[in-house]
Computed example of a mutant assay.
Amino acid sequence: MVKPVIFAICLGVLLSKALSIPLRSFADIELIGSQKSLFPFLGGSAPYFSFPANYGIPTDIPEGCRLTQVQMIGRHGERYPTRSEAKDIFEVWYKISNYTGKYEGSLSFLNNGYEFFIPDESLLEMETTLQNSIDVLNPYTEEMNAKRHAREFLAKYGKLMENCTNFPIFTTNSKRIYDTAQYFAEALGDGFNISLQTLSENSSSGANTLAAKSSCPNWNSNANNDILMSYSRDYLENISDRLNDENKGLNLSRKDAAALFLGVPSS
């Protein structure tokens, strides 16, 4: 008889940002979800997508073995930009939205009633949901991604869960991470008694945490800055030059071009 499975589902940190679909016309519905080819070029600023190359452990069960336990480690889903990122985004949006001419070239979509994707500053750093997204047809909300992952998890491991209807989901005390855990739990359905166990991200937690950035004395967020700075940033100047050539007087800088990758739809 297969032993009951113990599920420890941990929600960690994801640097994925929120994108929204501009409100224009019903004719644009066909464009929703059609720009996934851009995601690999946006790094952590893209919505969730399955990485083309899989370097993980195969999920196929080896011959002669049977699966008796599953532990899943997840990350929080798509979110609105952080407050520090939003500062640069607001600056470039101020330039673009106050442009007095007709938008040309790559920015011509702004002539069709585009609505800025951050409707309220209170949403900064929050998870994207159907309720707080500008467009209810937005397929890239954290809420729906967390629920979709839960249904995929249930489809793959549901047989094991028949004998395990009571289990914890561990999450940090970050609201967006807690929300992801809650959406995941909700999507598993009413057949399970799930308890959300919250672990603090504070430095006092030491090793008893899911997010060790604050509690790890050796953490250095600038450790690889020298490697990053060795790469050319010329592409940013090329972007700003192109947009400025198409829209005389816009005067975007290289810094503005970089901010476009943080959430404002880039060209």
Rank of each mutant, 00 (worst) to 15 (best):
L160H: 05
N132Y: 10
E78C: 13
G43F: 00
Y183W: 15
E121D: 03
C65H: 14
L38C: 06
D135M: 12
Y178S: 02
P139G: 08
S253Y: 07
A86G: 04
F117E: 03
L42A: 05
L130W: 15
P47D: 13
I194F: 06
N225Q: 09
Q197R: 15
T59R: 11
R75S: 00
K95A: 00
D256N: 06
L199W: 14
S266N: 04
L252I: 11
A207K: 12
F117T: 03
F39W: 15
N238V: 12
N163E: 14
Y140D: 15
F109R: 04
P47L: 10
P58H: 09
Q197A: 13
G77A: 13
L110Y: 01
N163K: 13
Y99L: 00
N112K: 12
H76K: 03
D226M: 11
N138L: 11
P139T: 10
L243Y: 07
K87S: 07
G189F: 08
R75V: 04
F184H: 10
A8F: 05
Q182M: 14
C216N: 14
V264M: 06
S37L: 01
M126N: 13
F7Y: 09
E104T: 02
E91W: 00
R233Y: 07
Y94F: 02
S174E: 15
F49M: 07
Q197H: 15
G105S: 02
C216Y: 10
F26A: 06
T59Y: 06
I134D: 02
H76Q: 02
N251D: 07
S221V: 09
W93G: 00
R83W: 09
G206F: 07
L15N: 07
L31N: 08
K248M: 06
N145F: 12
N193E: 13
L196K: 15
R254T: 05
I21K: 09
S205Y: 06
Y231Q: 08
V70Y: 11
P47Q: 14
G158E: 08
F109P: 01
V92H: 05
L243N: 03
N251A: 04
N132M: 09
C164L: 05
T180N: 02
K147L: 02
G101I: 04
